[in-house]
Design a protein around this nucleic acid. Structure first.
Lengths: 207, 207
DNA sequence: TTCAGAACCGCACTGGTGGTACAGTACCTT
DNA sequence: AAGGTACTGTACCACCAGTGCGGTTCTGAA
């Protein structure tokens, strides 16, 4: 069983690299099978069609990203007991992480899927939707905890605010690509941090 | 000469509708020529290849969007003499505009191009880049004027802040698609407005 | 009225790509 | 030895971007 899933992983690795570099459509199955050192028949043994590959990639991506966020905010919790500080520290760590990836963040498969969504079938879009809603509830929980200690200075929806995390990250990745500036995403995450600081922090001190 | 450019416009209209609906690759030339009531030869008479069509669409989109922003903030200037209020009013008008489009905003061609950029040639990416940098300088100018009257409460880069307009709009459009919630973009623009209000507004009144 | 050029049409063709079908084979576990 | 898993190899199809080129229609200037 190790042999099969190993090949499957290899196909996905090769495919992901090519897709993040060139886009889903620009990556042909022939190219993937060549780089993964497998035959076309072998590819279709593991994936029913190209959609199945996309779905697998998105699902894997969600897991990795979730684990990454878990780790990030776990470290933030270790560094402070204050919920607001945890949030601000977590965002700082996220910005650093985005900055540390050499050559800039490769981009987000979820956004790729969203912008080519008619290419994918319903299951792919559903997986994508689940991922985004998962992030919303994650950040919403954190914001609620913060709000219990620190009242907001402006009355904004916590759901919308939670979505802003994803919006800034995804939008940042899009714009980083458009202007070819890999540091843009990191800068935008820090602006979100600045917003949350102004919104919740009681003293109007600069951070 | 009216005849030629008329056909060209018709091709672009038909193509844009299909591309925003399904994505660039999912839209075949055969489909475009059928809906535009022209032949394939006719299409290639007007556009050297599919890239030329994309380039033309992006350039037209930039013009339209620029005119839209011009109009929006012109109206904001009519409503207030205060630079901060102009900015906040402009964002409110933008949010209303995004909300008013029936069925939600169709999406942004610039982001589509950014996420499939390897599909496009250098000229297309350059046009895209120019558009984004144009927005940056537009919003930067406005922010600078605001800053002359209202000092920022946190010291953030005006360039980054200017980029945040595009980031929130583009990211909002991506996420709106992902969760199938057309109102998301509008909500995010209002959050950006809330941030700018907190950042520049001297009194900590709620708006 | 003529006539050149712009704006097409019609059709045949090429190469690449996603996907199918199916027979055969190496390997690994029971 | 048997049987499933994990493939290989080959042949094939439909669709799509793009080419080539000869022919046709429309239009504005001389």
């Amino acid at each position: 069983m190790a042999r099969g899933s190993q090949t499957r992983q290899r196909i996905m690795d090769v495919a992901q690299e090519a897709i993040l570099d060139k886009g889903f459509d620009a990556t042909s199955i022939d190219e993937i099978v060549a780089n993964a050192e497998i035959t076309k028949s072998g590819f279709f043994y593991h994936f029913r069609d190209k959609n199945a590959l996309a779905r697998a990639l998105i699902e894997r991506h969600i897991e990795i990203e979730d684990a990454l966020f878990d780790d990030l905010f776990e470290r933030a919790r270790e560094l402070s007991d204050d919920p607001l500080q945890q949030l601000l520290i977590g965002l700082k760590l996220l910005a650093e992480l985005l900055a540390d990836i050499p050559g800039g963040h490769p981009g987000c498969i979820v956004a790729t899927a969203a912008y080519q969504d008619r290419l994918f079938d319903h299951e792919v879009r559903e997986a994508n939707r689940r991922a985004v809603l998962g992030w919303r509830s994650r950040f919403r929980d954190m914001l609620e905890t913060v709000q219990q200690t620190y009242p907001m200075k402006e009355n904004v929806s916590l759901d919308h605010l939670a979505d802003m995390f994803s919006v800034v990250i995804e939008g940042g990745l899009v714009m980083a690509r458009a202007v070819n500036d890999p540091r843009l995403t990191e800068q935008q995450v820090l602006l979100l941090r600045s917003y949350l600081n102004l919104l919740f922090s009681p003293a109007s001190r600069s951070v």
